[in-house]
Nucleic acid binder design. Structure first.
Length: 312
DNA sequence: TCCCAGGATCAAG
DNA sequence: CTTGATCATGGG
């Protein structure tokens, strides 16, 4: 077997602070379907500048002293394709985010968030590659388990996305374009993907994006409040889904999606158990943590899910 | 059979 | 502005 893998490394010097690749990718962030895992490598397939890439990442070392090994396949391989992939990876893993600054700013022992730092050091937010994909995945996640919305997303890709083949003999389906989903019907989406009542929302959003009634890129440029107002007008998009899209999709670090887990742990750690609405919890996170609200949410979420016995 | 899953919607209080 | 039933669907 002679597979023409390209390979290179991203050194720690190109990352701003620590990184725990495994924890980051496994943390089930709702911007895109979860990556596959092959041995010590995490694998994903994306189309970058119109060229399909299949890439595998593996981290060697510790969160504070490491390098990232990258292997990839693409139909074209010249010097610029490697550059395209490198900047893509740095973008989706948010390697420029100053994690040490995040830790230092909230390291006081009176700050409950600091409880999550020792175990989760190096955990980073991820940024979705495609805004439409991020919004659809966020919609699929509502009232659904992570495993299940991932299955649905995969079915959506298989039935409506383009198939791409690679030199190692494998093939994958890309996430579909809005227009290709918009051509479908509610019943067809349900029978093919089992997304249930979310089909109405998915179809609605796909049509609006395809018809240019909804400009997702504009939501990335405008402020938080304005973007939120527009998103809430979409059927099937509430505060939590909108925040997911803003955080994981557009990369708005002020957005802090509040689900049952976040609501539970914030109520416990910051409200002394006093009852509050989720909207109030979300506002609290934005006010208290500012540009680190999204990160605070990420750390508290993982902490709440893995260490619930400590806060029960 | 009932309950839950990283919620949203609609109708009432 | 808050609360409660309902919404497909699959798994425990």
């Amino acid at each position: 077997m002679n597979i023409p893998y390209n390979s290179f490394r991203i050194p720690k010097s190109e990352t701003n602070g620590p990184l725990d690749l495994s924890r980051t990718i496994i943390s089930a962030q709702t911007s895109e379907p979860e990556w596959a895992k092959e041995r010590e490598f995490f694998v994903d397939v994306k189309e970058l500048h119109g060229i399909p890439f299949k890439y595998s990442l593996s981290q060697q070392g510790t969160p504070d002293d490491f390098s990232i090994q990258v292997r990839y396949l693409s139909s074209e391989s010249n010097h610029s394709t490697r550059q395209v992939l490198t900047s893509h990876l740095k973008s989706i893993l948010r390697l420029d985010d100053d994690l040490n600054s995040f830790y230092e700013k909230h390291s006081a022992t009176s700050e409950p968030l600091s409880l999550t730092f020792p175990v989760q050091r190096g955990l980073r937010l991820m940024r979705g590659t495609d805004l439409y994909e991020s919004l659809i995945c966020s919609i699929l996640s509502q009232n659904n388990s992570a495993v299940r919305w991932n299955q649905i997303a995969r079915l959506l890709m298989r039935h409506y996305g383009k198939r791409v083949r690679f030199a190692d003999g494998t093939s994958n389906y890309l996430f579909p374009h809005p227009a290709d989903v918009a051509k479908s019907t509610e019943k067809e989406l349900q029978s093919r993907t089992a997304m249930g009542y979310r089909a109405k929302s998915v179809l609605d959003v796909s049509k609006k994006v395809a018809d240019n009634e909804l400009d997702l890129l504009a939501l990335k440029e405008c402020g938080y409040d304005e973007a939120m107002e527009i998103l809430l007008q979409l059927h099937g998009v509430g505060p939590k889904v909108a925040d997911c899209f803003l955080l994981y999709g557009t990369g708005n670090l002020f957005a802090a999606p509040v689900d049952v887990w976040i609501h539970r742990i914030v109520t416990k750690l910051y409200f002394r158990g006093r009852r509050a609405t989720r909207l109030r919890t979300a506002r609290f996170l934005r006010d208290r943590f500012g540009i680190w609200a999204g990160y605070a949410q990420l750390y508290l979420f993982d902490y709440a899910r893995h260490y619930t016995q400590k806060i029960a």
